[in-house]
């Protein structure tokens, strides 16, 4: 039996933890609706309520905040979908087909993941520059170019994850489908893909969130303000005169992170399910 005192102590510990986790969040929310727009004068409990900070973000002709939001969504969505498609196809091949170089390919994928991506920044930069001379649509300072780099980036890890999951799908299902009359492509679409949905959901979300917050590559490859992603824009914010506009910065941060939080809340179950489901065959 746990004593009353120890329960109380535990609760106190819990509340301290909650306070630590939530304090900055509440602070930012409070600052974003605070009519007093500077750091020194802001307080946890604002003196009034206003949405001016939010409105201002979209009205300021010098700051294309709306573009940044759209850019980020566009790139993250396309990147996550593209990544998922490529990784799932690659995983299917590695899991089901036996071909020369399969082992080497798997090892290669793993090996490439070991090196941090920014080792290749200079190479990526020059590659895109070269591509841009032939196909300007995919060169530097284009979203398509950035997407290309993003697509390459996370495939290795994701392929590995999906392959591991696909390996737990019994091969006799493929064979049953084969006898039923399905081509390899149909087996992938109608049998394997639906069964790997949990892990695909997780990877989609993780990739989406990762790309949404990605700053380094984007700031190397994108130049013009209207092409910026939200992460880049916010960083510019903090370096510009906006740094003093604490309320606006807070509002921008909240608007930027809201979709991510929402996605997590909605997909929570799927994420946990997907991360654990691979372990046991149902």
């Amino acid at each position: 039996m746990i004593s009353r005192r120890s329960v109380t102590l535990r609760h106190i510990g819990l509340w301290i933890g909650i306070f630590f986790a939530l304090y900055p969040v509440v602070w930012i929310i409070s600052a974003s609706v605070n009519p007093v727009d500077n750091l020194a004068a802001s307080r946890l409990i604002p003196e009034g309520l206003t949405l001016d900070n939010y409105r201002g973000l979209f009205d300021d002709p010098l700051v294309p905040f709306r573009d940044w939001l759209i850019n980020s969504w566009k790139i993250s969505l396309a990147g996550a979908i593209g990544n998922l498609a490529l990784a799932a196809l690659a995983a299917y091949s590695f899991s089901r087909l036996r071909f020369r170089g399969r082992r080497a390919g798997l090892l290669g994928l793993l090996l490439v993941q070991v090196f941090p991506q920014f080792l290749g920044f200079i190479a990526i930069f020059f590659t895109l520059q070269a591509i841009g001379e032939v196909a300007p649509g995919f060169g530097l300072d284009t979203h398509a170019g950035l997407l290309l780099v993003y697509l390459g980036g996370a495939i290795g890890f994701n392929t590995y994850l999906i392959k591991g999951f696909m390996d737990t799908v019994p091969i006799s299902l493929d064979e049953a489908a084969k006898v039923d009359g399905a081509s390899p492509a149909l087996i992938f679409w109608r049998v394997i893909l639906p069964l790997t949905r949990p892990v695909l959901g997780v990877i989609f979300i993780i990739t989406f969130v990762g790309l949404y917050g990605e700053l380094l590559l984007a700031s190397v490859l994108l130049r013009s303000a209207e092409n910026f992603t939200l992460a880049m824009g916010l960083q510019q914010f903090s370096l510009s005169e906006y740094a003093a506009k604490w309320g606006a910065l807070s509002a921008a941060a909240i608007l930027g992170s809201a979709p991510i939080v929402a996605t997590f809340l909605v997909a929570q179950k799927q994420i946990v399910g997907g991360l654990t489901q691979g372990g046991v065959k149902g």
Binding site: S172, E175, V179
Partner: peptide, 19 residues
């Protein structure tokens, strides 16, 4: 190919499509 052999197979582990 299997699909053109006009045969149907029953597997040891049934191999039913779980979804």
């Amino acid at each position: 190919p299997p699909k053109d052999r006009d045969i149907a197979m029953v597997f040891q582990n049934y191999a039913l499509y779980p979804h």
